[in-house]
Amino acid sequence: MIIDAHAHLWNKQQGLVNGKPVVGLYGGRSDFGGELRQMLPPYLYDGRNTAEAFLANMDYAGVGGSVITQEYIDGNQDEYLLTVKSGYPERFRICSLYEEQENYRVKGFDGIKICAGRLSHDLYSCSPIFQKAEKENLFISIDLAEGNAQTKILEELVQSFPKLKIAIGHFGMVTVKGWEEQIKLARYPNVYIESGGITWLFHKEFYPYESAVRAILTAGEICGMDKLMWGSDYPRTMTAITYLMSLDFVTKSKLLTEEDKTMFLETNAMKFYGFHEIKIAEKVKNMVED
Rank of each mutant, 00 (worst) to 15 (best):
residue 249 F to T: 04
residue 259 E to P: 00
residue 219 A to D: 09
residue 200 W to Q: 13
residue 228 L to E: 12
residue 211 S to C: 06
residue 211 S to F: 04
residue 231 G to S: 11
residue 272 F to R: 02
residue 202 F to I: 12
residue 226 D to E: 15
residue 271 K to E: 14
residue 245 M to R: 14
residue 214 R to G: 00
residue 230 W to Q: 09
residue 243 Y to S: 04
residue 200 W to C: 04
residue 228 L to I: 15
residue 258 E to W: 03
residue 274 G to E: 07
residue 262 T to E: 12
residue 210 E to I: 13
residue 208 P to F: 05
residue 261 K to V: 03
residue 206 F to G: 08
residue 200 W to F: 12
residue 201 L to R: 10
residue 231 G to K: 07
residue 215 A to P: 02
residue 222 I to D: 11
residue 216 I to E: 07
residue 223 C to S: 14
residue 197 G to Y: 05
residue 252 K to G: 02
residue 229 M to K: 09
residue 214 R to M: 11
residue 233 D to K: 09
residue 277 E to R: 03
residue 259 E to A: 12
residue 221 E to R: 15
residue 257 T to K: 02
residue 205 E to G: 10
residue 227 K to E: 11
residue 237 T to W: 01
residue 203 H to L: 15
residue 224 G to C: 07
residue 278 I to W: 00
residue 242 T to I: 07
residue 207 Y to V: 05
residue 263 M to L: 14
residue 209 Y to T: 03
residue 237 T to R: 05
residue 218 T to N: 14
residue 230 W to N: 05
residue 260 D to M: 05
residue 234 Y to N: 13
residue 276 H to T: 10
residue 235 P to W: 06
residue 202 F to C: 06
residue 200 W to N: 11
residue 233 D to M: 08
residue 201 L to E: 15
residue 267 T to D: 05
residue 199 T to Y: 02
residue 212 A to S: 11
residue 261 K to I: 06
residue 273 Y to R: 05
residue 239 T to C: 12
residue 275 F to S: 01
residue 219 A to T: 12
residue 206 F to R: 11
residue 251 T to R: 11
residue 244 L to W: 02
residue 218 T to F: 02
residue 255 L to G: 07
residue 217 L to H: 04
residue 263 M to V: 01
residue 217 L to K: 15
residue 254 K to L: 09
residue 252 K to F: 10
residue 219 A to H: 07
residue 209 Y to I: 03
residue 208 P to I: 10
residue 234 Y to E: 12
residue 209 Y to Q: 01
residue 239 T to G: 03
residue 240 A to K: 05
residue 246 S to A: 15
residue 204 K to L: 13
residue 252 K to A: 11
residue 269 A to D: 08
residue 273 Y to H: 02
residue 265 L to G: 04
residue 245 M to S: 12
residue 263 M to W: 06
residue 205 E to F: 11
residue 225 M to F: 14
residue 199 T to C: 13
residue 199 T to S: 07
residue 210 E to T: 13
residue 220 G to P: 08
residue 271 K to T: 13
residue 229 M to Y: 08
residue 239 T to W: 02
residue 221 E to Q: 15
residue 232 S to A: 11
residue 261 K to S: 05
residue 242 T to S: 15
residue 213 V to G: 06
residue 200 W to P: 00
residue 249 F to A: 02
residue 262 T to P: 00
residue 228 L to W: 08
residue 238 M to P: 00
residue 209 Y to R: 02
residue 277 E to P: 00
residue 240 A to E: 11
residue 263 M to Y: 05
residue 242 T to M: 01
residue 278 I to H: 00
residue 247 L to M: 11
residue 206 F to D: 15
residue 254 K to M: 05
residue 244 L to Q: 12
residue 234 Y to K: 09
residue 250 V to S: 04
residue 202 F to P: 06
